[in-house]
Design a protein around this nucleic acid. Structure first.
Ligand code: SF4
Ligand code: SF4
Lengths: 151, 151
DNA sequence: TTTAATTCGGATAAGTTTGTCCGAATTAAA
DNA sequence: TTTAATTCGGACAAACTTATCCGAATTAAA
């Protein structure tokens, strides 16, 4: 009927996560990376990615430097402190935390539907995953070849 | 940045689930219900709901009857057999089953990212929930008052 | 047989997300 | 100081989802 609705996150969020991961990896080697390089590396549209990076910079997830040799960077000590949840929140808001997976409006704990218990478990696991996974964690699988961000 | 991306399912799917649940409830009492009644009951746009019901009928999830006193119905014996997964699949396709929650394309079991194991667990739980929950299960919470579909 | 209630189904509009364009602002280097 | 590389940021366009409109087809009942 409609296009397959495939992702847990918005496209913007997906690019944000990939970009942050790549920037984190380069920052660990004290390399600052440009928008152009990032977009190429994660295979995303340049101008759209610019907006997302800007958004992340405004939310203090990335540091940005203008001018020649400028670009984006993450303070080394923050690579471990920054969690996936921070990136997701900066772009998609608190979608993961609020509302009902079935779209039946807010939870009514007094009279929950038969799915409620299972739903809450799943949502909490997702939440936990986002809050426990740091950008450092995400880079760790990329050591062999960064190409996986492009797949 | 953008509107909060709140649901696990598309709006179409959400209406589909609510409508199916209401139709199931009425079918158990041998009542056939019209589009108008359904849309009113689940608080959804009439014409849009029509398309979704039509889609569900084409996929043999609902029986539809045209003409006066026509409407939608589910064979009693199917109310228990039909799972949430069938409704979701008919409308949103196999989104839940395929692809990666992070949007990093298909799983590569040989070289998964650090999230992979947790992600697969969450996805499987979601899958299981959809496949285990029948329309009958969904109606069971509604006995007291159907109003919860409207919230 | 006529009428009216209803689903079917295409055209189209509105809203949201995704993506593009381009000029302004900033700043390192020539 | 000039130049050029780069992010910033608004306006706009394309694509997708959601929603509306309206007429055709069907069919029960008058
Ligand atoms: S009770 Fe059911 S419908 Fe309501 S929020 Fe919980 S899972 Fe969603
Ligand atoms: S390995 Fe990671 S990125 Fe790839 S599909 Fe699994 S969870 Fe997604």
């Amino acid at each position: 009927m409609y296009q397959i609705h495939n992702d847990m996150f918005s496209k913007a969020c997906e690019y944000g996560i990939k970009a942050s991961t790549y920037i984190a990896l380069q920052s660990l080697q004290d390399k600052r990376v440009s928008l152009k390089e990032i977009a190429e590396e994660i295979n995303s549209p340049v101008a759209f990615t610019a907006k997302i990076l800007h958004q992340l910079a405004k939310n203090n997830i990335l540091d940005s430097v203008k001018g020649p040799a400028g670009g984006f960077q993450i303070e080394k000590e923050n690579v471990e402190k920054l969690k996936l949840s921070h990136v997701v929140f900066a772009i998609d808001g608190d979608s993961i935390y609020s509302g009902c997976g079935l779209g039946l409006e807010k939870c009514n704990e007094q009279q929950p539907c038969p799915l409620h218990d299972k739903f809450v478990i799943i949502r909490n696991e997702l939440k936990q995953m986002l809050e426990e996974t740091s950008l450092l964690d995400l880079t760790s699988g990329l050591d062999l070849g960064i190409t996986f961000l492009k797949r």
